[in-house]
């Protein structure tokens, strides 16, 4: 029991971060049909900027805020300098653009920061909580609570605000959205900024547990992408479910089978799922129309 709970929490914690990355993917994909492989770099920026600001004496909450702002600004720049000018390019070309951007961001981070691993203090102490005999880090609760809040907030934003509706309209039909007077360029910029901010928050929350460095973004992007596809791309609920499922699978595979192939679980699972369900878990099968 204790082991099960331990693995459950470990899985949910990493899963929550994957879910945030996948959610960022989904948001950008919905608005622009671009799969943004630089998504992991926002998570990296969230962690690294907070670490360096905090070490320079900025109070932690302020440092975190600064990190979110930096990531959102980077997301905006990414859109206006690389994605928008490549408008109309093929899927493969856009993938290469975002991967190029991620290499660039990582390269800059390596120059501006350094190549070391860095930690942050846990937000509310390191004293583990005892749950059914398992030791749960309070920071895990921060990650889960924070991610839950973001998902809820994003949902409210999309459903209840005019801007959120504009985003959904743009996702559904760009041309029609433009015709009814929606500034789709603004919507796209917003999607990039928001999904960067979401990624950054994930990075800040998880750094006290996993540490961070300039290079953590790549694997996170790949797994977040896998999670988004697992759920069926373009489906926010699917992204969250996909992220959590991946995190849990990894944790239990590492705990019960072997930790050597922990990083492979995500990809093995996605291959098997796609072989059985070519549209992802929650994706709808559309009949190609001619």
């Amino acid at each position: 029991m204790a082991e099960f709970v331990q693995l459950l929490f470990a899985g949910l914690t990493t899963g929550a971060v994957y879910a945030l990355v996948a959610l960022g993917f989904t948001l950008i994909f919905q608005a622009s049909e671009v799969v943004n492989f630089a998504q992991g770099e926002f998570v990296m920026l969230g962690g690294m900027v907070t670490v360096f600001a905090y070490n320079a004496g900025v109070p932690l909450p302020l440092a975190a805020l600064l990190a979110v702002v930096v990531a959102a600004a980077t997301g905006t720049l990414l859109h206006s300098l690389a994605i928008a000018p490549a408008k109309g390019a093929t899927v493969v070309t856009l993938i290469i653009v975002t991967i190029g951007a991620s290499i660039l961001i990582r390269g800059l981070a390596q120059i501006i920061f350094d190549k070391q691993f860095h930690a942050l203090p846990a937000f509310s102490g390191d004293e583990p909580l005892r749950v059914f005999g398992a030791a749960i880090l309070p920071q895990s609760l921060w990650v889960l609570g924070g991610s839950g809040t973001i998902v809820l907030g994003l949902w409210l934003f999309m459903e209840r605000t005019l801007l959120g509706k504009a985003v959904r309209a743009t996702a559904a039909n760009r041309l029609a959205a433009e015709l009814v007077g929606i500034d789709t360029r603004l919507v796209l910029t917003l999607a990039f900024a928001v999904s960067a901010a979401i990624g950054a928050v994930g990075g800040i929350l998880v750094t006290p547990i996993t540490l961070t460095s300039y290079a953590v973004g790549t694997l996170l992007a790949l797994k977040g992408f896998a999670a988004a596809m697992l759920g069926g791309i373009g489906n926010p609920v699917g992204a969250v479910v996909g992220g959590l499922v991946l995190g849990l699978l990894e944790a239990f595979a590492a705990g019960w089978i072997s930790s050597t192939y922990k990083d492979g679980v995500a990809f093995l699972v996605i291959l098997l799922v796609l072989f059985a369900l070519p549209q992802g878990l929650l994706g709808r099968a559309a009949v190609g129309r001619v």
Binding site: L81, A82, P85, A86, A89, T93, I96, V97, I99, G100, A101, S102, I103, L104, I105, R106, G107, L108, Q110, I111
Partner: peptide, 20 residues
Amino acid sequence: HEYEHAVLGLLIVLFMVFLR
């Protein structure tokens, strides 16, 4: 040296944007 990755990433983006 240090700038290797940044320059590579930048070149990839520039190529893809301007010589699509």
